[in-house]
């Protein structure tokens, strides 16, 4: 019998900002590309995001933030993922993240940062190509 594997993605919004237009457009595009998308809703703490990723056993996490708090929140999220043994989960991010912060964020283990104006096609393609090979 063939396995009915689906890509499960968590779209999460850390920080207090409420700009969810981008997060929702991406969520919808990934869903339309055949993925199962879990959305956390606004204003999630790093603890909530990581615990959700664990319970939902997702393959991918997309973080969206426009408040500027990424420098405080992303390191915490990546640290918690490691703590919980979720190292194989692929993480990407989007929102307003200045270019000069990108190297630092990538060093944390965030695979890619998508700035404003990124076509959703590109994000879908990226997810498909970088899907972790899960055991």
């Amino acid at each position: 019998m063939q396995s009915k594997r689906k890509i499960r993605v968590l779209i999460a919004k850390p920080g207090l900002d409420s700009h969810d237009r981008g997060a929702k457009v991406v969520a919808r595009a990934l869903r339309d590309a055949g993925m199962e998308v879990i959305y956390t809703g606004l204003r999630q703490t790093p603890e909530q995001i990581v615990e959700t990723a664990l319970q939902e056993d997702v393959d991918v996490i997309g973080l969206s933030i426009l408040s500027g708090a990424h420098r405080a929140l992303f390191p915490r999220i990546m640290e918690l993922l490691k703590e919980k043994g979720l190292t194989e989960v692929m993480v990407f991010a989007g929102g307003i993240i200045p270019d000069e912060d990108v190297p630092e964020m990538k060093k944390l283990g965030i695979k890619e940062i998508f700035g404003p104006g990124t076509p959703t096609e590109k994000i879908i393609e990226f997810v498909l190509q970088n899907m972790p090979k899960k055991a």
């Binding site: 869903r31 339309d32 590309a33 055949g34 199962e36 809703g41 703490t45």
Partner: peptide, 17 residues
């Protein structure tokens, strides 16, 4: 599309931890 949007837990997120 075979995709799905799973949004029920939004209302329970405080319980997730």
């Amino acid at each position: 599309t075979g995709g799905a949007f799973l949004g029920d837990r939004i209302r329970m997120q405080e319980l997730s931890t």
